[in-house]
């Protein structure tokens, strides 16, 4: 009744980080907005790195509402993809090196997305975390919150519905 020895921590970390990097780096729009992800186990926090090109109202100044919406949508899609891919990353069914070479999984598609603007986005970094309210075989519902200086003072939140990518039939049998 001996159990397999747990993998060394560095191996686990390296695999998870490589998979996350491959997922994020593959999307040009995420690089354009300079959104990065911080990982603790399977929990992700997105960071929108401030730049002047993100300004919507130059008189205040404030981050463009469209950028805020995009930041929340990117956070939702990556978080949803990450949770969808997690079992395959852990089991080794997905090879992060192949992902980095361009063998990317299909991403969830946005059906609808509703953003509440709670206060204006200040010209500095912003953070966001998404929670998956429901994840079914075809549809998923996600809630996402964004803040800047204080975690409890959200500047925007959103709820969206997504169409999940369908796993190929052979993956079901394995």
């Amino acid at each position: 009744m001996s159990r397999a020895r747990p993998e060394p921590m560095q191996v686990v970390k390296q695999r998870r980080d490589a998979a996350l990097n491959a997922l994020v780096e593959a999307v040009p729009y995420i690089r354009f907005l300079d959104i990065t992800f911080d990982r603790r186990g399977d929990e992700l926090t997105a960071q929108l790195n401030f730049d002047d090109k993100l300004i919507g109202n130059p008189f205040l100044p404030a981050i463009h509402g469209g950028v805020t919406a995009a930041f929340l949508e990117v956070t939702s899609i990556i978080t949803l993809s990450w949770s969808f891919l997690w079992p395959d990353i852990e089991s080794g069914a997905i090879d992060p090196e192949e992902m980095a070479k361009g063998d990317l999984p299909r991403l969830p598609k946005t059906i609808d997305f509703t953003v509440d603007y709670l206060r204006s986005g200040l010209p500095r970094d912003a953070y966001a975390r998404a929670t998956i309210s429901r994840s079914g075989r075809r549809y998923a519902s996600v809630h996402v919150e964004a803040w800047q200086d204080h975690k409890h003072k959200l500047f925007a939140q959103a709820t969206g519905h997504f169409l999940m990518p369908q796993k190929p039939p052979e993956a079901k049998d394995g």
């Binding site: 593959a26 729009y29 907005l33 463009h64 950028v67 899609i77 299909r106 991403l107």
Partner: peptide, 20 residues
């Protein structure tokens, strides 16, 4: 602005920015 590298379709976020 590409959101899906496989299909080259632009990201919904860019459409949001335009809409807003």
């Amino acid at each position: 602005l590409i959101g899906d590298p496989k299909t080259k379709v632009i990201h919904g976020g860019a459409v949001s920015a335009l809409m807003d």
